[in-house]
Design a protein around this nucleic acid. Structure first.
Lengths: 154, 154
DNA sequence: CGCTTGCTTGGAGTGCACTCCAAGTCAATA
DNA sequence: TATTGACTTGGAGTGCACTCCAAGCAAGCG
């Protein structure tokens, strides 16, 4: 049975799992459209993620439809953060591989994440330095606007 | 007293231009390769920027070669910052158009920059929230590594 | 003079991260 | 039974921001 619009669950303080998942562990079998509603990704993108090896193995129904779990949701959450911070998909795929390979890849995973953290810190510094330039230029324009308003009104 | 692109003076302790430019105003006619050396952009990109309207009018020699000025360098500096902060090229082209159109576009320029500043602030917040996730996960891996090292050495 | 270097052009190609399409399966309703 | 709607697939298409190519011109050097 197709699970129709199951209340656009989005919040974590929701009735269901108070661990932040739409449904508690044990009943966590989400169709692709439910995951779309929860993550904001498109179904295309979810299928593409799976094709390129960016997902852990996703379970299927007897008819071949995907059923995602809470763990998949958590993973997509992390992927979303890495993506938002500009990690290339290839690097995320590498990280996914390491996770699949097991605990002996802890060191390399740590390395990968540490390198990315450094990138993110640099990005933040860049953004903040640009913020100063923007502030300066916006001030210049705002001053010009206020000056012309004064002329208009006086 | 046109309020123009008075870019952030980078205060290089360089021998040449006291104002942070390779050559002082008056002798500022840079070939494309000099601009490449100074900005880190490729010649392709500089020509492409001009083609799409992202540059103010660039002067030419009698044989048709580009000669960039200190003002162009300042502009490229700003463009670089906007690009680094993820402003789409189309928006930068729009800003360039407004600058070409003159002072009556001050208000719209201010608007455009203010909207972008808001984006940048959001990006910074996103990055910082991801930083926390990264810190947490890196700690987990580091703890695991330290634990296994203890077993190895004792 | 011929060679090299540096530049010119319009247009085609690249890499990334999706994004969509056509054709099909399956389950549930009218 | 017929239709609807959610889902499946491999492969093709899109949009962005470059990135490169081929062919050609001009200046400087031996």
């Amino acid at each position: 049975m197709t699970v129709m619009e199951s209340a656009p669950v989005k919040a974590r303080k929701n009735c269901a799992g108070r661990d932040g998942h739409p449904r508690p562990t044990g009943q966590d079998r989400y169709s692709i459209s439910e995951v779309v509603a929860h993550t904001g990704l498109t179904a295309h993108t979810l299928r593409w993620y799976e094709r390129i090896g960016l997902m852990p193995h996703v379970d299927r129904t007897h008819t071949g439809q995907r059923r995602f779990t809470n763990r998949d949701l958590d993973w997509l959450d992390l992927v979303g953060k890495l993506r938002l911070t500009g990690m290339p998909v290839a690097d995320m795929v590498r990280y996914a591989e390491l996770v699949r390979e097991g605990e002996h890849t802890f060191a390399e995973r740590e390395e990968l994440l540490t390198a990315h953290r450094e990138n993110v810190r640099e990005r933040i510094a860049e953004l903040q330095s640009t913020l100063q330039v923007l502030d300066f230029k916006i001030d210049v324009y705002a001053d010009a606007r206020r000056a012309s308003e004064r002329f208009d009104t006086v």
